[in-house]
């Protein structure tokens, strides 16, 4: 009986210790994630990126890039298929803010549209790989399928004159006559 208790007590200790360690690991793991509204971007990075994307596709009678969900698209991809571009985004967005602070004493997101355009134009010359990447991803998000988070309500497709989803009657097949549509 004594040996049984000993075995149980020892196992319990080990179990509790393992549980505490596991719980701590889970807690640390959870806290290390991004706690903002985005999968990868911080809220500050998102504001900076929105300023850049909106200079690439500004609003007119149709929504701007950020209004059409391009940030959602880029953020989702950086969390998944575009992980390899994370460092380029981190450094590029930081550099964009540095440029803005140096020239206008404020973050890019706080600058006027004209000032933002000046910074984005500078990025196009000084940070060409970053600018090309953001431009490419902006286009993908703005014109790609809405299922990926961008092109909200298929706005760019409507801009091009395409109805999405199209209005189309059901495909009707009368099997005694063959296809009728």
């Amino acid at each position: 009986m004594q040996s049984k208790n000993k075995a149980v007590a020892l196992t319990r200790r080990q179990f509790v210790a393992a549980g505490v360690l596991g719980g701590a690991a889970l807690a640390v793991g959870c806290k290390s994630g991004n706690q903002g509204n985005w999968d990868f971007l911080s809220d500050g990075q998102a504001r900076t990126l929105a300023a850049i994307c909106d200079q690439i596709v500004p609003a007119d009678e149709f929504p701007s890039a950020s209004q059409a969900g391009v940030l959602t698209y880029i953020d989702r991809q950086l969390f998944r298929h575009y992980r390899r571009h994370r460092d380029v985004y981190r450094e590029g967005l930081e550099h964009a803010n540095e440029l803005s602070r140096k020239r206008f004493a404020k973050d890019l997101a706080e600058a006027t549209p004209a000032q933002q355009l000046e910074i984005v134009s500078a990025l196009e010359k000084e940070e060409r790989p970053f600018f090309d990447l953001v431009r490419r991803h902006t286009m993908e998000g703005y014109y790609g399928s809405p299922r990926h988070g961008g092109n909200r309500d298929a706005v760019s497709w409507r801009m091009l004159g395409l109805d999405e989803p199209p209005v189309r009657g059901r495909a009707q097949y009368d099997m005694r006559k063959g296809a009728t549509s």
């Binding site: 399928s145 809405p146 706005v155 409507r158 989803p165 209005v167």
Partner: peptide, 13 residues
């Protein structure tokens, strides 16, 4: 097909 909602205002008449 897209597995998302399209706002009524964005749909074609």
């Amino acid at each position: 097909r897209e597995k998302i909602h399209f706002a009524a205002a964005s749909l074609a008449i």
